[in-house]
């Protein structure tokens, strides 16, 4: 390895990264800015970049329950639905993923590594291939158009990968720590709660973030399963919103910004763990 810093290389790489980031983020940023403009400003020429007279009118309109549009799309409802489904399926995935991950990392049983590898294989299938069978299945179970059904579905989809991430990281925690705790008087459960889980926090946060973001932004399954307006989630709301209010870009921008907000917050606070947790799994897979 060359111990000397190579400034040109890093400057070049940074410029390249900036260009890519601008290319990707510019439309999103523009939409974000648009959410603070009036419909008039958006329609007038020449186009403005920064809002001339910034207003949160578009946001208040989203939450105006008396307006005609909220009869069709009830944003507070959409948001609370999405939160309910994402948060509860994240909790389910964390609880069961931790228990399963602990078993995979600590208990010898026949076919253990095969099954653990199989968990990853399950991620190789395109979700779209499962749309129809899932729809039939949920219908037969009477779980279509139900938030409970969607929560269970997301949990089932998220569990394998979460288990894999958690198991990989638990494998790196020496078993001697638990043996030591057992000698110190801890039960198996106390070992897990007091020793293993605190040490596995980065992996747990990673798994939780990964799942929350996935559940929050899931569209395909929600769109075929959730029919009534009371049970829809933000991604469906956003899609139909674009269809209904194409002309009112400020409102579309406001809705999109709102929907993106939780994901940005999750990454803002958790990205430190996110890379660490994924890397921990990557080194020892």
């Amino acid at each position: 390895m060359n111990p000397q810093p190579r400034p040109l290389y890093w400057i070049g790489l940074s410029i390249f990264g900036l260009v890519i980031a601008t290319y990707v983020l510019f439309p999103i940023f523009w939409l974000f800015l648009a959410s603070f403009k009036t419909t008039g400003e958006l329609a007038s020429l020449p186009l403005t970049f920064w809002p001339v007279a910034p207003t949160i009118e578009a946001y208040t309109a989203l939450f105006d329950t008396t307006s005609q549009s909220s009869q069709i799309l009830n944003w507070p409802r959409l948001i609370s639905n999405s939160f309910l489904v994402s948060v509860s399926s994240t909790l389910i995935v964390l609880v069961f993923g931790t228990l399963a991950g602990y078993a995979f990392s600590r208990i010898q049983f026949p076919g253990r590594d095969l099954i653990l590898g199989g968990l990853l294989i399950s991620r190789m299938f395109q979700g779209a291939a499962l749309l129809l069978p899932t729809y039939r299945l949920m219908n037969n179970l009477g779980l279509q158009d139900s938030l409970l059904g969607l929560t269970l579905l997301y949990s089932a989809f998220g569990l394998p990968f979460a288990t894999w991430i958690i198991a990989s990281s638990l494998r790196e925690i020496p078993f001697e720590l638990e043996e030591s705790a057992m000698m110190d008087g801890a039960s198996r459960l106390q070992c897990m709660v007091k020793i293993v889980l605190p040490l596995a926090t980065p992996a747990l946060i990673t798994a939780a973030m990964w799942h929350f973001v996935g559940a929050w932004s899931e569209f395909a399954f929600a769109s075929i399963l959730m029919e009534s307006s009371d049970s829809k989630t933000v991604t469906i709301g956003l899609a139909s919103f674009v269809e209904l209010f194409t002309i009112e870009f400020n409102r579309v921008g406001a809705a999109a910004s709102l929907v993106a907000m939780p994901i940005m917050l999750v990454f803002f606070f958790g990205q430190r763990y996110f890379t660490r947790g994924l890397l921990a799994g990557a080194v020892k897979g």
Binding site: P174, E176, L177, E179, S180, A181, M182, M183, D184, G185, A186, S187, K194, I195, P198, L199
Partner: peptide, 27 residues
């Protein structure tokens, strides 16, 4: 193990990394 009234010192010490020395000893 916990009911045997035996204490053990491990080869790699097996100290709890997330606890201070005091907490390790008090565990």
């Amino acid at each position: 193990p916990k009911n045997r009234d035996i204490a053990m010192v491990f080869q790699n010490y097996a100290l709890y990394p997330h606890m201070k020395v005091r907490e390790n000893m008090a565990f």
